[in-house]
C-alpha cells in the first residue's frame, strides 16, 4: 500500500494548521494512488495529539517520542524523520513551508538522497505515470514550473500555509497508531536553546478572515492608521505590499506576497496596491478581492472581484462612516 506522508509540525504541543491543510491534500493524493494518508508526529509527550491528526484525515500515524525532541532542532528531527522514511519507504512526503519545515526538509531530502520541491502551490498525481506533479512559482512568481521526481522516493515537497484549504475535522475518526523508537542523544543535537522571545504582537495574517491591505499608493505611514481603523471595525488584520514595507511604513510581519505571507481571507481589501505578480501570488486565493487604485491600469484590477478606480482615502473614509452607521443600527 502506497503511503502519502505528512509531517505534523508541532511546537509546545500545538499543531501548526498547515499540517491539517496538508492532511487534506495528502488524503486526496492517497486516494488517487489507492494508498493511505499518514501523519508523522515527532516530539516529547505529544501522544495526546494523535487523535487530532486522525480527525483531520490521517489513516495512520507514526509516532516517535523522545526527550531530545522536546523542541525543534535540525539534527535530531532530521534523524528521526529520515529513519522512519528509510524504514517504511513512503511514496510522498509533504511538509509545511514554515521556518521549521523549510529547515527540516532540505536536510531530510539530502539524507534520503531524493528530490525536494519548495513552496509548491499545486499537487496532482499524473494519471499515466503515478508521479507527483508539483507546481510552484519561479522567478518571483513570473512563471509557474511543474516539477517531477520520477526516479527517487519519497517525492518531497514543502507547501506554504493557506495554499490549500483546511479540511473538515471529523472528531472520533480513528486510524492505526504505530509507535517507533530511535536512538537520539542530546550531545549530537549540536544546538541548544537558551532563551525565547515570543513575538510582541502576533499578526495572524495567514489565518485572518478579513485583511485590509495597503501599498505604495497610501503615500506614507499615516495611511496605515486609517486602514487600521477600518480593519478594527471589520475585525481584520492589516496587510501590506513589499513596497510599503520597504518604505518603512509598516513592519515585515504584515507583508503579503511572494516574499511575505500567503493569505486566503474571506475578504481582501487592497488600498493603493498596484498588484505586482509577486503580491498577487500571495493573495489571489482570497474569496473576495476588493481593490481601489487611482491607476486604471493597475494589475490588481485583473484579479479583483470589485475594482474601484479612484482615491483610496475617499473610499476608506466613506466605508468607515458607513460601517459605523451599519453597526449602530
Amino acid at each position: 500500500m502506497k503511503e502519502v506522508w505528512v509531517f505534523i509540525e508541532q511546537e509546545d504541543g500545538r499543531i501548526h494548521p498547515v499540517s491539517f491543510e496538508l492532511l487534506g491534500v495528502g488524503k486526496r493524493l492517497a486516494d488517487d494512488l489507492s494508498g493511505i494518508c499518514v501523519g508523522i508526529l515527532l516530539g516529547h509527550q505529544v501522544s495526546s495529539l494523535v487523535d487530532e491528526v486522525f480527525s483531520f484525515g490521517a489513516d495512520k500515524v507514526y509516532l516517535i517520542e523522545h526527550e531530545v525532541l522536546s523542541y525543534y532542532r535540525h539534527i535530531p528531527y532530521a534523524k528521526a524523520l529520515s529513519f522512519l522514511a528509510k524504514k517504511y519507504g513512503p511514496e510522498i512526503l509533504l511538509l509545511g513551508a514554515t521556518p521549521l519545515g523549510r529547515d527540516l526538509a532540505g536536510g531530510v531530502a539530502t539524507l534520503l538522497e531524493t528530490g525536494l520541491t519548495a513552496d509548491v502551490t499545486e499537487l496532482e498525481i499524473d494519471k499515466e505515470t503515478g508521479n507527483l506533479l508539483m507546481t510552484r512559482p519561479a522567478y518571483g512568481g513570473n512563471i509557474m514550473a511543474t516539477i517531477i521526481c520520477p526516479n527517487h522516493r519519497p517525492q518531497m515537497a514543502t507547501v506554504r500555509p493557506r495554499i490549500f484549504p483546511m479540511p473538515e475535522r471529523k472528531p472520533g475518526r480513528r486510524g492505526e497508531l504505530i509507535v517507533e523508537r530511535v536512538d537520539l542523544y542530546e550531545e549530537e543535537a549540536g544546538v541548544r536553546r537558551i532563551g525565547f522571545l515570543p513575538k510582541e504582537k502576533t499578526v495572524n495574517l495567514e489565518y485572518a478572515e478579513v485583511i485590509v491591505a495597503g501599498g505604495k499608493g497610501l503615500g506614507g505611514k499615516e495611511g496605515f492608521e486609517k486602514l487600521r481603523e477600518l480593519a478594527r471595525l471589520l475585525g481584520g488584520e492589516i496587510g501590506a505590499s513589499r513596497l510599503a514595507v520597504e518604505a518603512g511604513w509598516i513592519s515585515y510581519d504584515h507583508q503579503v506576497g511572494q516574499t511575505g505571507k500567503t493569505v486566503r481571507p474571506k475578504v481582501y481589501l487592497a488600498f493603493g496596491i498596484s498588484g505586482a505578480i509577486q503580491h498577487r501570488a500571495g493573495m489571489q486565493n482570497s474569496d473576495l478581492i476588493i481593490a481601489i487604485n487611482s491607476d486604471p491600469k493597475a494589475p490588481i484590477f485583473n484579479i479583483a472581484d470589485l475594482g474601484i478606480i479612484g482615491d483610496w482615502k475617499i473610499l476608506c473614509d466613506a466605508l468607515i462612516e458607513a460601517i459605523k452607521r451599519h453597526k449602530g443600527n
Binding site: Q284, I289, P296, F301, N302, I303, A304, D305, L306, G307, I308, I309, G310, D311, I314, L315
Partner: peptide, 9 residues
C-alpha cells in the same frame, strides 16, 4: 483570474 466588475469613482 477572470476580471471582475470595475467602477470609476
Amino acid at each position: 483570474k477572470k476580471k471582475g466588475k470595475i467602477v470609476d469613482l
